[in-house]
Amino acid sequence: MKTLITLNINGDAREIYIDARRSLLDILRDELALMGAHRGCDSGDCGACTVIVNGQPVTSCMMLAADWNGAEILTVEGMAKDGQLHPIQRALVEKGGIQCGFCTPGFVMNIKALLDENPKPTEAEARAWLAGNLCRCTGYAKIIEAVMSVAEESA
């Protein structure tokens, strides 16, 4: 059964015919060619597919796209502006918070959600918030350094 839904993705309203079985992640990657959200575990554990929906960070692999008609979605593709990296992306690059890069888009989006709500987190708060993002290169120290440096800049 195909359903017509509208998703507002990075500021653009997109009308899409979707199969009700497809996850939001499936639609982003396979229908809209937005490859930033990654498919890691496909079961909500790794956070690589994190996007921001209606202002909240979510694992897009655990959502039926059909359930989210009309949602406002921000993906990593919507973060850089005018060819300039978002400060969170720049901090991850500068602090060495990227190794293989597979987990990075998910981290970028969840860090954005964190700093939108709490611009000055403690390190413990940042670690707790990011518990649902796994980095298999285990580069957590640098990622947390990057978060704290962005929080610092926003002083």
């Binding site: 909500g44 956070g47 960070p57 979510v58 655990m62 649902g132």
Partner: peptide, 9 residues
Amino acid sequence: MASEQIRSL
């Protein structure tokens, strides 16, 4: 419970 992302859902 779970993670920030799962708690949003």
